[in-house]
Design a binder for these strands. Structure first.
Lengths: 205, 205
DNA sequence: TCAGAACGTTACCGACCGGTCACACCCATG
DNA sequence: CATGGGTGTGACCGGTCGGTAACGTTCTGA
């Protein structure tokens, strides 16, 4: 995540030139897609929110679909950073990593009531040929495998099944947030995760 | 394009008491919303698929939103019928009901790769003020409570937590179907459910 | 027989969409 | 100064959308 090129320009945070247009567009697009849905927001509004215009947007990204993929890829990078953080803060202690993973996701549930941008995009774009679907599928797969690795390192019986279960719980919680609000969902997710982890820790299921 | 004027009026080989337009519209709308998304299909196409026209559609339903709510309500009725079936086929045997519930949902995962229409609608309509949201929330709540009743009758330790966990697993599986395909998702859901039910049956979690 | 409801057909409206074009602008480098 | 790339501006295109108006048709039932 190297962002600063240290230009000798004015570092005024309010100045639109502080951040290059491309990043502003991706950032604004992610924001508006999240708020209104992919089909619910137009490229004009995205460009305006990024303090630029439609022409520049189309010069950076050939189409709205391409812009969408770029925003999703950015989301995957941000979300994927958790594993590095886990390894950094709890190196070697996989059980602690698993516990922290749950808490991290609980925080996300409470702070991001819009659910998972990737999953939401997949739901909204029913056409499975859409290029965004590949981004989503690859991400979900990698997240599950990373989780399975942690589960295995934590000495769980049947780490694959535990990872599957926790993945489903998370996926379910992130959509429940959108149907039933974040209040109960995060609590239920946490309690379900703790019970599940305990069960897989105790028995030979 | 339009070779109309053909008097195919009474040439319908189906029953004389044909399905009334309203039901046809709701049925077609549910189908097309499922296939293309709510924002991905127009009322014209819905009317045509229902073998009627837009004017009739708007006379039966005042707006697209109203039509959407009607289709969602129909989905809730259909999906809610499972509880009657469960009680009919396994009266008194709550453990068997729970097992059958899992298998029923597994079948749905495999046969309906589009996920849950209600949840999908909630995801697509980010505006939580939309009338459809109320329909979705009420349905999800009732489903969870019904499941909790079965869990309690099955003698589970902590039936509330078990119901929450199974609900999250189902919700997660029905979105995973859309991100990773139905092959692995249904199997993972079943195995996770079985392990979870077993854990709640065996211990005092 | 005739009224009236239900349904079909066509055309239309205003709004918005994704995407393109031509052109002016700013600013760094030579 | 010249030049050329990155950027801003506004007009424009073809298409689709949700929704409505006006009128014609078919069926029913008293």
């Amino acid at each position: 995540m190297s962002s600063s090129k240290s230009p000798d320009k004015a570092a005024d945070p309010s100045s639109p030139t502080a951040i290059p247009p491309r990043e502003r567009i991706v950032s604004s697009a992610a924001d508006l897609f999240r708020k209104f849905g992919i089909r619910g927001i137009g490229v004009d509004a995205i460009a305006e929110a990024a303090q630029t215009n439609k022409m520049t947007l189309y010069r950076k990204f050939g189409s709205k679909d391409e812009l969408l993929c770029a925003t999703l890829r950015q989301v995957t990078q941000r979300a994927g950073a958790i594993w590095d953080e886990l390894e950094r803060d709890f190196a070697g202690d996989a059980a602690a990593q698993l516990k922290r993973w749950v808490e991290f996701q609980v925080d996300r549930l409470e702070q991001e009531p819009g659910g998972c941008d990737l999953a939401n995009a997949a739901v909204e774009l029913r056409d499975s040929d859409h290029p965004a679907h590949a981004v989503v599928q690859e991400f979900k797969n990698s997240q599950r495998n990373r989780l399975a690795a942690v589960c295995e390192a934590a000495g769980s019986s049947n780490p694959e099944l535990l990872a599957d279960t926790l993945s489903l719980l998370l996926e379910g919680a992130r959509v429940s947030v959108q149907t039933s609000g974040p209040e109960g969902s995060s609590r239920r997710f946490r309690e379900s995760c703790e019970a599940t982890i305990a069960a897989f820790h105790r028995s030979r299921v």
